[in-house]
């Protein structure tokens, strides 16, 4: 009985002060930016399990992958996340691009079809998210219309956003370019592969959670 009352009062307090028990955190961005790598790093850090497979072939994630009850405890603070790793958003999907990776024609065509459906699915999930991490490849030009469209749509939906410049371990990486392309947003540079700067990322994640 006491437990029921405790849970009830917690729920009431949470709804009064706007604190969510579990934050739905979406990972968005163009293909091959490292969304799954970052989601894997977080999930591995706090649950010991990965969320999905990564690959150098674009559109490896073709369905939204979800990991629930990811509890992040950092410097005495605690955050429970429902992580949604989404397929990369693109304006073109060409099966011939996959043939360069020694894929058979039929497999490439199937992958392209799944990728197009995945992009539509990604967009549909946007409304359901509480906050969004936009993952960009810091070694690529950030001024692509896809990046601007993704960020614009998140802001238009009044979702708090954190932009992550991934792959800062690469020589070509230039975080300043991302900062000048999106001057109004908080930007954190990381390497999901090597774990570089993840502390700074977690600090930013808690700041993002406060905006919900």
């Amino acid at each position: 009985m006491i437990r029921i009352l405790k849970a009830f009062s917690k729920r009431i307090l949470n709804s009064l002060f706007g604190r969510k028990e579990e934050i739905k955190l979406g990972f968005y961005g163009p293909p091959n930016a490292g969304k799954t790598s970052l989601a894997n790093t977080i999930c591995k850090d706090w649950t010991g399990e990965e969320i999905g497979k990564v690959s150098e072939v674009p559109h490896e994630t073709r369905q939204v992958q979800v990991k629930e009850k990811v509890v992040v405890e950092y410097k005495g603070k605690k955050l429970t996340l429902k992580i949604a790793d989404t397929p990369g958003i693109a304006t073109r999907v060409d099966y011939e691009d996959f043939l360069k990776f020694k894929m058979k024609k039929n497999t490439a065509k199937k992958r392209a079809k799944e990728a197009t459906q995945g992009i539509i699915e990604s967009i549909k999930w946007l409304d359901d998210m509480d906050a969004i991490i936009v993952v960009l490849d810091a070694s690529q030009n950030p001024y692509s219309q896809v990046n601007i469209t993704i960020v614009g749509n998140i802001v238009a939906r009044n979702k708090p956003v954190l932009i992550v410049g991934n792959k800062i371990d690469l020589k070509k990486a230039d975080l300043k370019k991302i900062e000048s392309a999106f001057p109004e947003y908080e930007i954190v540079g990381i390497s999901a592969k090597s774990g570089q700067n993840m502390d700074e990322f977690y600090e930013a994640l808690f700041r993002l959670a406060k905006k919900i």
Partner: peptide, 17 residues
């Protein structure tokens, strides 16, 4: 508009299929 841009992406994906 931003919602038109994202709709353009969705419709484009549906048309590729």
């Amino acid at each position: 508009k931003v919602e038109e841009e994202i709709r353009l992406v969705e419709d484009t994906m549906a048309m590729i299929d």
